[in-house]
Design a protein around this nucleic acid. Structure first.
Lengths: 221, 221
DNA sequence: ACCTGAACACCGTTCAAGT
DNA sequence: ACCTGAACACCGTTCAAGT
């Protein structure tokens, strides 16, 4: 009986070409999205991966799902970076390096800015985002306790701020690919305790992030 | 002879329904873009304006051109606001109010963030943007001379920063429509002279903006 | 001179037919 | 179980026919 179920397990296992195709598609899509932005066609991604258009939809229910999957990978990478930085001796430098890593990730990816809005209501993305927010909160708390940053900044703030340097520099990103570092510098300065006037609006909460998905986009009746 | 040319002038004048349709389309498009973002269909815009789909393309060569035209109007409004603020007695408050007006404009418009990238290489938009940059530079210079801001910030910096508060708050904008003010506060703090470490990357130049259009998007050969 | 809606090309998505 | 490419719906854009 148990032998049977293990045989069934083997039968149910994904085929070798399936898993291979899946990662080929993810790899191709990540590269195309980074180079061309969100508007790349599925046909192009499929061609780069060397599979038929239909195969993409065999692995991902929609283009949004595919984008969300890639998003999750990026978030996971950043989460690992943040986790490692928790061991850094300087809380201030740990936070700064975390933000720098996040900003750099987005500066090198043409799709990232726009994709934030697209992907926010995917459960997978939110889970990855929550995990990232945990790490960000820990890094922020350490820096706060060390007096390295203004006291009113939270981990969720940091998450939202990661995209800012690349977003600000976007209009001239082609001609000045390093300009995002200027605004990263500015934002890191803004986080310091020196210039702080009390922030006039409450920090975003975890609920703000989870509830955002329930609200549909505005549209006609 | 001159009588003739004036008659020709009359014959060449746009028809009354044409100019009316043009503004109907612009009005409808501006509203739909603000509510729904860049992905609204031309069909919807045409329906809201009460004209046929083809009429839209009769007035604007492409969807991008239509978006660019609306962009220019927004820029012009902001330029007027900035010009008025040059008469403000406090250079610091004048600059702050200018930035606030720009940030508010973008916070209320779902298309603005993404449209920045779309519209940057339209000649009309660049002209409007240059005009806006002039005013921003004057406001910035006044604030700089008054010691109200760090010395390394330029007018072009201010232009790029206008979109930051709305951009940062985008992921939770539906649930927290006022959150952009929190990051506006943060950025205004960052502009103060107190926290300034010298910026590590040179400011964007006028050439950076004009040259950006010549670079094509990355694509396959 | 401008409006109109049918026609076209392109892209995301589906699905019946293969293996 | 998965791959494939033909088929479908939708949207930006064009254009011949109207007024």
């Amino acid at each position: 009986m148990t032998e049977w179920s293990s045989l069934v397990r083997i039968w149910n296992m994904p085929r070798a070409d399936s898993t291979r195709n899946r990662s080929l598609v993810i790899e191709a899509a990540a590269a195309e999205l980074a180079e061309c932005g969100l508007e790349v066609s599925i046909a192009r991604i499929a061609a780069r991966a060397g599979v038929a258009k239909g195969t993409v939809f065999n692995h991902f229910a929609s283009k949004e799902d595919l984008i969300a999957a890639i998003f999750c990978e990026h978030f996971a990478t950043l989460t690992a970076t943040g986790k490692a930085l928790l061991a850094h001796s300087s809380p201030r430098e740990a936070l700064h390096e975390f933000i720098t890593a996040g900003a750099e990730l987005q500066a090198g990816d043409r799709s990232f800015c726009a994709a934030t809005a697209t992907a926010r209501d995917h459960p997978m993305v939110r889970q990855a985002s929550d995990h990232l927010a945990d790490i960000a909160e820990q890094l922020t708390a350490r820096a706060r306790e060390a007096g390295a940053i203004r006291p009113d900044i939270t981990g969720r703030d940091i998450i939202l701020l990661l995209g800012a340097p690349a977003g600000i520099a976007t209009p001239v990103a082609d001609i000045r690919p390093d300009l995002w570092r200027r605004y990263l510098n500015l934002i890191l300065d803004a986080l310091g305790p020196e210039a702080a006037r009390p922030l006039n609006v409450a920090a975003p909460t975890s609920q703000d992030f989870t509830a955002a998905s329930k609200t549909g986009k505005a549209g006609a009746t």
